[in-house]
Simulated assay, not measured.
Amino acid sequence: MADITDIRAILYTEKTLGLQEDGMVVIQTSPKMTKNGLKAVLKEYFGFTPLRVNSLRMSGKVKKFRGRIGSRPDYKKFYVKLPEGAQLENLEA
């Protein structure tokens, strides 16, 4: 079962701010989150059901630091279409 702790952040970039004007929010979550799980979390904690949810699996980049190879963690991005008048508030990531 998905939980609010699986949501890592709401992404704020130039592209996502442009999408927010059209009622679309981009959410970064853990890789185990599903579309139905995200819908259930949004309904339970924020009181609305999204109109549309699209998901994108992102692999962590491989990086070098002081000669050692490591990688950033994998995550999922969800593009969520909010209903009219709905907002995501009180989400500390």
Score class of each variant (00 low, 15 high):
V80T: 05
P31V: 15
E89V: 15
V25R: 00
K35L: 08
R68K: 13
E14S: 10
I7E: 10
P83F: 09
E44R: 14
L51D: 14
I10G: 01
Y79L: 08
T29C: 14
L91W: 11
L88A: 04
L88K: 01
K39R: 09
I7Q: 08
V53C: 07
Q87R: 12
K35A: 13
P73E: 00
M58D: 06
F65T: 11
G67M: 08
L38E: 00
F48R: 01
P50L: 01
G67S: 04
K81R: 13
V26H: 04
M1Y: 06
L42N: 04
Y79T: 07
P50Q: 01
R68L: 13
T16K: 03
D3T: 14
Q28P: 00
T16A: 12
E92F: 10
A93L: 13
N54P: 03
R8G: 11
E21V: 12
Q87T: 09
I7D: 10
F46Y: 14
A86R: 01
F78Q: 06
L51I: 13
A40P: 01
T5R: 13
A2D: 10
D6S: 09
I4K: 15
I27F: 05
N54D: 14
L82N: 00
K35Y: 03
T29H: 06
G37N: 08
G67T: 04
Y79G: 03
K61I: 01
K15N: 05
I69S: 09
E89N: 10
L17S: 05
K76W: 05
Q28N: 06
F65R: 12
L42H: 02
A9S: 09
D6H: 15
E89C: 15
D74R: 08
G18H: 02
R72N: 13
I69T: 15
R66W: 05
P31D: 11
K15D: 00
K63Q: 04
Q28R: 15
M58I: 15
S71A: 07
F78W: 03
